[in-house]
Design a protein around this nucleic acid. Structure first.
Length: 709
DNA sequence: TATAGGCATTGCGGAGCGATCTT
DNA sequence: AAGATCGCTCCGCAATGCCT
């Protein structure tokens, strides 16, 4: 495979601050990275001015003008003839920019394999880029889809995913760097080169394309379409092929009026069931999962667009036992009357996935990687088909079908719970209690006066799965997944486990957190760190006292932050990020990150675009919280004091308190202030009424700011 | 030109109500 | 003395980002 990455830091000579625009600023530099190498070059940097500098390295090519550079660039692509061209945010920035500049300079960007032009198409808030015969990959949206990070600028992504540093130059300094020809000019070139290298490295090291290539193979949709679009295209491809075999037609895409009408009825589609968790610290919980729940339900009940009964006249004469009635209402005919097309597709995918997994066991390393991508692609497709049926813009939309699937799912989960608690009740002297569940999973607590070993828990977990599976129609299957030695559930979809899984006959343990602030990206890093530590102490050590001590230390360190050095690093831990989801004026309520965008706009600073995550910190002041959100680098530069009280009382303590209150620990105990040590010393199992009856205690406002300049 | 719904959490801002201030 | 204003609690809603 051949990949090429190109990048142009065109943000030079921008009018005054902000982003450069192609009608004013020329492209001054283009950096490239190649895989495999182009002759001996792994990278190349094209520069649109003649430079005579001892600092310039071999892979730098200089030109007398932008015109000359661009012509060379297009020719180079044709000569190198890559299959894949990649960039980072290149669909939104680099490619449209190049196309514009080429137009202005009257150069043909004829880099297609058939000599056609590089083509850019703006669609709503996205841009599609195509080059005939080549795949164009913008890494940014793929990284966004694949990894949950707080920010997605190349620097953060490279640091988090590759553990690599990126050379950085502030936009305002670029002019200066460009105009120098010494050390600084070299740094500028390094910066450009590094960008290309990193983007290519992301693609190769993280094997980003494997998954999409596998999806393309499995679904039959074009790779470029899969990269550009969502899952709809893939599902429709599968459906179209199979429907054609049966000589059936598929309706066209719904007109927007039609899909809007469907969308208005979206509350009629009900989803999965969630079992109210038993809160607090639990021991010896086995976790069982339904394998591909929705696909197996669809297969076993023959649910399909082609089996749904739309008019009772259709089933006159059909015996009642061949009519399937989902809990949600509606009727379907059994496979004996007509085998549904969707169930058939799903069964194929399921079988192929099993075969692929079987092959993986004996595969070489290289084969394994490909097979793994294929089984993952099969899984993605399996799970997409239900979602597609309830998607308002789908060609084949069916509320009846989607509701039938989820209603069987809900019924099944609740039946499972009943079966375990009311019929099985006890295995080998171990009492069973369902303590949580969500859609396709059940968490079962085992109790026995002599304790529960990991091996025993596994045996019991497996027996449960066997007993339950036996009662279900094929291919539905409840699987044993793991055991949690200890677990804390604080709400639906929010829990932490000390989980043990068997790998090569050894028990491997880890802490797994779901839904809590450790995971959520709209809390600051210090919250995650503190909560993680508390969870670890409570789950592994079982020591509430140590957890409290840790929280008190953190609180104290924030309260006394002015005496600490290295404030900039501390700020990093206090940054909160939120996604800028829509145009600023379509927000109905004020939002902290949106006030930051407005502040940046006023200052003429570079603005985040829709879809970006906006970082902010909360500064001191008496006005509304949302108005006190501020750009972290502005805070650093101007040494603005942060709102210590907010961080302690609204960021650090509430998430931690939600855990520790299960052990009778009150907020006041955690809101630790060294100067008031005697008042707030920890007393275990404090009466919960104390807080209600006692007046809120005023904390001393001795030191409120993080900074005291 | 987003595969789906279920859920917890946060902070704003309006409604309701009584206390206090103003004219 | 009557209306205006303030301050508080309660609650609905928008927004976000998670879970399966």
């Amino acid at each position: 495979m051949v990949c090429r990455y190109m990048k142009l830091p065109g943000n030079l000579r921008a009018a005054e601050g902000g982003m450069p625009s192609p009608d004013k600023s020329p492209i001054i530099m283009i950096s490239l990275a190649f895989e495999p190498s182009l002759k001996e070059y792994k990278t190349m940097v094209l520069v649109s001015k003649e430079v005579d500098s001892e600092y310039i390295e071999e892979d730098v090519i200089t030109f007398s003008s932008e015109d000359e550079m661009l012509r060379f660039f297009f020719d180079l692509i044709k000569k190198y003839d890559p299959d894949v061209i990649i960039g980072y945010n290149s669909n939104e920035f680099d490619f449209p920019y190049i196309v514009e500049r080429a137009k202005i300079l009257n150069i043909d960007p004829n880099i297609g394999r058939d000599n056609r032009f590089l083509y850019v198409k703006k669609i709503a808030n996205r841009t599609q880029v195509s080059v005939t015969g080549r795949i164009v990959v913008d890494m940014l949206p793929l990284i966004r889809r694949g990894f949950s990070l707080k920010q997605y600028d190349l620097r953060t992504v490279a640091a988090q995913l590759l553990n690599l540093e990126k050379v950085d130059i502030a936009p305002k300094e670029m002019e200066e760097y460009w105009n120098s020809d010494g050390e600084k000019f070299k740094k500028f070139i390094d910066y450009a080169r590094r960008d290309s290298e990193l983007a290519l490295k992301l693609l190769l090291d993280l094997k980003i394309l494997d998954k999409y290539i596998a999806l393309s193979k499995v679904s039959g949709a074009l790779l470029q379409d899969i990269l550009d679009g969502g899952q709809t295209g893939m599902v429709e491809n599968l459906l179209l092929r199979e429907f054609k075999k049966h000589n059936r037609l598929i309706p066209p895409k719904p007109a927007s009026k039609e899909s809007e009408e469907r969308y208005e009825h979206r509350d009629e589609l009900k989803g999965g069931a969630v079992i109210e968790p038993k809160r607090g610290l639990l021991e010896n919980v086995v976790i069982l999962d339904y394998k591909s729940l929705y696909p197996t339900i669809t297969i076993s009940h023959n649910l399909c667009y082609t089996t749904v009964v739309t008019n009772d006249k259709e089933i006159i004469g059909i015996p009642i036992k061949e009519i399937i009635k989902p809990p949600s209402g509606g009727k379907f005919v059994s496979a004996n009357i007509f085998r549904g097309i969707v169930p058939k597709i799903l069964e194929d995918l399921l079988n192929r996935r099993m075969e692929t997994k079987k092959k993986m066991k004996t595969a070489t390393e290289e084969e394994y990687r490909i097979l793994d991508a294929i089984q993952l692609a099969l899984k993605i497709l399996l799970n997409s088909i239900y979602g597609y049926s309830g998607y308002a813009r789908a060609r084949l939309y069916s509320l009846t079908l989607a509701n039938a699937i989820t209603s069987f799912g809900r019924e099944n989960l609740l039946n499972t719970q009943k079966l375990i608690e009311d019929e099985i009740k006890n295995i080998d002297g171990f009492d069973l209690e369902v303590v949580a569940g969500d859609t396709d999973s059940v968490f079962i607590k085992l109790s026995n006066q002599n304790g529960v070993s990991l091996d025993k828990a596994e045996i019991i977990g497996k027996s449960i799965s066997e007993i339950v599976t036996k009662k279900l129609p094929k291919p539905m299957e409840l699987e044993f997944e793991a055991t949690a030695k200890r677990a804390i559930f604080i709400a639906k979809k929010r829990y932490a486990l000390w989980k043990y899984e068997k790998k090569n006959d050894d028990w491997i343990d880890k802490i797994e957190v779901k839904g809590m602030e450790t995971i959520r990206r709209d809390w600051c890093e210090l919250t995650s760190k503190t909560l993680n530590k508390v969870l670890e102490i409570v789950l592994k050590e079982g020591s509430v006292e140590n957890a409290i001590k840790h929280v008190q230390e953190v609180v104290n360190s924030i309260r006394n932050i002015e005496v600490q050095k290295d404030k900039d690093n501390i700020i990093e831990d206090l940054i909160i990020t939120r996604k800028y989801t829509k145009k600023a004026d379509s927000y109905k309520n004020k939002q902290p990150h949106i006030t930051v965008v407005e502040k940046l706009k006023k200052r003429g600073a570079p603005l985040p675009s829709i879809g970006d995550r906006v970082p902010y910190v909360i500064i001191e002041g008496n006005n509304l919280l949302v108005e006190r959100a501020e750009d972290p680098s502005y805070v650093k530069e101007n040494k603005i004091p942060l709102d210590v009280d907010y961080y302690i009382k609204k960021q650090i303590l509430p998430p931690v308190e939600r855990i520790l209150k299960e052990f009778g620990v009150e907020f006041e105990v955690l809101n630790y202030d060294e100067s008031q040590k005697s008042i707030f010393e920890f007393k275990p199992h404090i009466n919960k009424n104390i807080r209600k009856n006692s007046k809120p205690k005023k904390t001393k406002k001795r030191q409120k700011s993080l900074f005291d300049y």
